[in-house]
């Protein structure tokens, strides 16, 4: 669907194309205004986005330890990380496991809660507030809070488990449980997903449900045949955003585990941080950051490509 503005714009372009490529007074005025309006942003974009991207590209092909000039080494950084650096693969493994568990579980959880919120329940607004609250408070504070919740000796979580006569795991003090602990903690912040899904649910026209009910569909069938297809674009969006966000997990590991125990929570971004700002391998850290980009890009593209098979857009629902 094209916006009206785009149509107008195109029409104008066509008109202009017919004439000499010289601007009329009005068009020149508009162009000047355009350059004027865009210049602060454009300058910022060039300096703080485009130039750093180009620089990062160059840095990733150098060995650069800040004090001496960057030394060009071609693709050696990438060669090293792909074939010689076990810690890189450890960081990929840890990050991917985190994403694989966190994203689907939090999607299901927030969808379920959004469905609940969408019912005519008493205190709906209060509940919505409570569910969303954890998603707004500073991650540093959240992390400090969960350090103590997870403390195997004094933490409230293991105290609770102890009520059943079981000694809980060592959580962030165990290389086996540290990653699950961070996943559990991330599920506490499902609020964003709930809000997105709730908005999507409220956008589904009531007449579709009415029609389905007339056709004899029960609650479950209505969910499968109406809610899910109608919600699928929102689901796709939420999943992609969540994948992109989850790949960039840093604060929790920085505050709570420092990547440990062992390297059990050495997420990719934490590994980038340590290479750059603890060991000062700027070139190598840049190469790692590009890997982050490629991984996120490829996974997003796969998700978008696969969405052709499961995302339904409005026009198609009647016919399907």
């Amino acid at each position: 669907m094209r916006s009206r503005q785009a149509q107008v714009g195109q029409a104008a372009d066509e008109l202009a194309a017919g004439k000499r490529p010289r601007m009329s007074g009005i068009a020149r005025k508009e162009a000047i205004a355009g350059y004027f309006a865009i210049s602060p942003w454009l300058l910022g974009f060039l300096i703080f986005q485009l130039a750093p991207i180009l620089a990062a590209f160059y840095i990733s092909s150098t060995e650069w330890r800040i004090l001496s000039a960057p030394e060009f080494i071609g693709v050696r950084n990438f060669d090293k990380l792909l074939f010689k650096d076990d810690l890189f693969w450890q960081s990929i493994k840890v990050t991917v496991i985190y994403v694989i568990f966190r994203v689907p579980v939090s999607a299901v959880l927030s969808l379920a809660l959004a469905l609940l919120m969408n019912q005519q329940l008493a205190g709906r607004r209060l509940f919505r507030t409570i569910y969303y609250l954890p998603a707004v408070i500073p991650l540093v504070a959240v992390s400090m809070m969960w350090i103590w919740i997870f403390n195997p000796e004094y933490g409230v979580l293991n105290s609770f488990i102890r009520l059943f006569g079981i000694e809980g795991p060592q959580w962030i003090h165990s290389s086996r449980w540290a990653l699950p602990a961070l996943i559990i903690m991330s599920l506490w912040q499902v609020g964003t997903g709930i809000v997105i899904f709730l908005a999507g649910l409220q956008g589904i026209p009531a007449h579709l449900y009415e029609a389905a009910t007339i056709d004899g569909a029960n609650t479950w069938q209505r969910f499968l045949k109406v809610t899910l297809p109608m919600l699928s674009p929102v689901v796709l969006f939420a999943l992609v955003m969540n994948v992109i966000g989850s790949f960039q997990i840093f604060t929790q590991a920085y505050i709570m585990t420092a990547g440990g125990p062992g390297n059990a929570t050495l997420f990719l971004v934490l590994y980038i941080y340590r290479n750059a700002f603890e060991w000062f391998h700027m070139g190598y850290a840049s190469a790692l950051a590009w890997v982050l980009f490629v991984v996120v890009l490829v996974i997003s593209l796969i998700m978008l490509r696969s969405s052709e098979h499961w995302v339904h857009y409005e026009g198609r629902i009647g016919g399907a």
Binding site: L46, I47, L50, A51, P52, L54, A55, A56, Y58, I59, T62, W64, I66, L67, S68, A69, P70
Partner: peptide, 14 residues
């Protein structure tokens, strides 16, 4: 003015 790419190329030496 020139931005980061240029910057790095002429990063100062101690």
């Amino acid at each position: 003015v020139a931005g980061g790419a240029f910057m790095v190329a002429c990063a100062p030496v101690a």
